[in-house]
Design a protein around this nucleic acid. Structure first.
Length: 347
DNA sequence: AATCCGGGGTG
DNA sequence: CACCCAGGATT
């Protein structure tokens, strides 16, 4: 048995036991709670997640409670967190467990990984943290730490590279508590072995770190650059009636921001927007072009949203969904439309 | 294997 | 602005 592996796991877990943060999802081994936290934490920072996690668990305290909720409620609890398919997949998986597993999260990594939204990382994380299965939980954090400690220079955006890391972790899991070790690895990445300015002086395994010895810690991990987001022009209509109701619409069930709500909007310019207002909502009103342009960056798109405002008389025959302020708050809107609502309506 | 899918923090 | 982040589904 490798001396390196023994010392690495011991030093890392010892460090974790004394230095770990007191995070809400660490106060329980309930697989449901662990699962919620892991899904929220995908591509999302701890500080952002905490308030969402607290609110979500208050609203859906148990797996059956979430299973019985309507998707709109779930999306509302996810509003502003991004990657909304996470919420829909989680909800679908939980309903599957309520139907096929008597409401209990499967105590079986292979079964758990079959569920919607549960991939290699989330599967390993929940199964190891809740049930102490010897399953790797390799995320970006773990790949950064191990690429440095082991001096692995493959591109971490490749699947093949992630599997290499999983093999190393499997070896380590044989000689430690999986729940603690997996979390220790991620905690080290979050607190010490950071992307920039890693705090090697405080690192419990710096003596074992090859990148440290070579003086190349900050050059790792190697990661392919992502394509720049493409520009899209969006035109958006904020139409109110004389009773302070505003026209909103639901986005398609698939694709970008699926199922979320917005003010009527089109890809394109004023003419395209007018056509939609006429065809879909039977609205022939004069639009006023506002000077503000809202810029919003997604992972692969950059929106420039031009705003057009208008008012119609209440007695006109309304088509579409018109809501007052109180009703508005119950729908789930992407952040860019929340900003627009705040600016033009004060909502 | 490459692309799609949000939002916020950091330097 | 560039880069990063507790990824998974789809094609």
């Amino acid at each position: 048995m490798s001396l390196f592996a023994y010392q690495f796991t011991q030093d890392l877990v010892d460090w974790y036991e004394s230095e770990q943060r007191d995070l809400p999802w660490r106060r329980s081994r309930d697989p449901y709670r662990i699962w919620i936290s892991e899904v929220m934490l995908q591509q999302t920072r701890v500080d952002t997640v905490i308030p969402y996690y607290e609110n979500f668990l208050k609203k859906f305290p148990t797996l059956p409670a979430l299973a019985n909720a309507h998707e709109d409620e779930v999306l509302k609890a996810w509003e502003g967190l991004g990657y909304y398919s996470r919420a829909r997949n989680l909800h679908g998986a939980v309903k599957e467990i309520a139907a096929s597993y008597d409401g209990v999260v499967p105590n079986d990594p292979d079964k758990f990984r079959e569920l919607k939204g549960v991939g290699p990382y989330t599967g390993g994380a929940v199964m190891s943290i809740a049930y102490d299965f010897k399953e790797p939980a390799v995320d970006g954090n773990v790949m950064r730490v191990l690429s440095r400690v082991l001096y692995i220079t493959e591109d971490i955006s490749k699947q093949k590279t992630r599997k290499q890391f999983e093999e190393h972790v499997r070896e380590y899991l044989e000689m430690t508590e999986p729940s603690k070790f997996n979390q220790a690895l991620m905690e080290l990445g979050a607190l010490i072995c950071k992307p920039k300015k890693p705090d090697c002086e405080q690192c419990p395994v710096s003596k074992l770190c090859v990148a440290r010895e070579k003086g190349v810690v900050e050059q790792l991990p190697i990661k392919a650059k992502k394509a720049k987001p493409k520009d899209q022009q969006v035109s958006c209509a904020v139409i109110v009636d004389e009773n302070e109701r505003v026209l909103i619409e639901q986005r398609p069930k698939e694709g970008l921001l699926a199922g979320l709500w917005q003010f009527p909007a089109v890809l394109g310019h004023e003419d395209d927007l007018s056509s939609v207002l006429h065809d879909q909502y039977k609205l022939d009103i004069s639009l006023q072009k506002e000077s503000d342009v809202f810029k919003h960056v997604f992972s692969h798109l950059k929106w420039e949203v031009s705003i057009y405002t208008g008012t119609i008389a209440t007695e006109e025959d309304h088509q579409g969904v018109w809501v007052n302020k109180q009703e508005f708050q119950t729908y789930s809107f992407p952040v860019v439309y929340q900003k627009i609502a705040k600016h033009y309506l004060g909502w």
